[in-house]
């Protein structure tokens, strides 16, 4: 999947880059041959643009407040999300649980694989060589730059999305949220907490 824009961004010399030209050529060919339509293409772009971390936050809030759902989510992330009506498309999801003892963070060192069906398009920094090369090698230093300071006795687990699965972090439920309902809980769940560079907000 590439990041589509209605007006393709320009390459370094103002023209289209090699891959932008290739992408346009392939999509024009598919449309010309009737395998795909311009409307369908625009519809897919609109659907991708409409996905946002709110979906992931809803999943996290439900897992925090429903132990049976949480167990299903950790056992088979794809099936659990589909069971609450989320369209997972071809995504195969693994959810990793953070706690007071373990902190998880996700990366794709090869490109920009990301649980888009739950979090929408990845932030620009997620795709940079800086994040991708450093979080796998010095995760604690990178987390500190995001304002996430972890004591040495918290185990840091990095998850590299290198193949067919996509990963999402189930952040630890913040203290002082025992009486909150799901809707209020979901508001504490940031995109960065589901990537694992941050923690869920405290109320």
């Amino acid at each position: 999947m590439t990041d589509h824009n209605h007006a393709p961004p320009r390459g370094p010399n103002g023209g289209l880059s090699h891959y932008q030209t290739m992408e346009l050529a392939v999509s024009e060919l598919l449309i010309e041959k009737g395998l795909f339509s311009e409307q369908k293409l625009q519809g897919e772009i609109a659907a991708m643009d409409a996905r946002s971390p709110e979906t992931g936050a809803r999943v996290v809030a439900l897992a925090w407040s429903d132990a049976a759902f949480k167990a299903r989510l950790l056992d088979d992330g794809t099936a659990a999300c589909e069971s609450i009506g989320i369209d997972m498309g071809p995504t195969r999801l693994v959810v990793v649980e953070s706690s007071a003892a373990i902190h998880n963070v996700i990366v794709c060192t090869l490109c920009s694989c990301y649980p888009r069906m739950l979090l929408g398009l990845p932030p620009d920094w997620y795709k940079t060589a800086n994040y991708r090369s450093r979080v796998v090698r010095e995760p604690r230093a990178v987390l500190r730059e995001f304002g996430t300071e972890l004591p040495d006795d918290v185990v840091v687990r990095v998850h590299d999305n290198t193949a067919d699965m996509r990963y999402m972090v189930l952040p630890a439920r913040p203290k002082g949220t025992e009486s909150m309902d799901r809707e209020a809980l979901a508001k504490l769940v940031t995109r960065d907490s589901m990537i694992g560079v941050g923690l869920a907000m405290t109320p």
């Binding site: 010095e138 604690r140 006795d153 185990v155 840091v156 687990r157 990095v158 290198t162 699965m165």
Partner: peptide
Amino acid sequence: RVRFAQREVWPDYAGAGADTVDVEI
């Protein structure tokens, strides 16, 4: 999904000894 100790992957790893990286292979 294979779990590696960070100190196995990066001999000069500066974080805690129990830290890991999981990679799909």
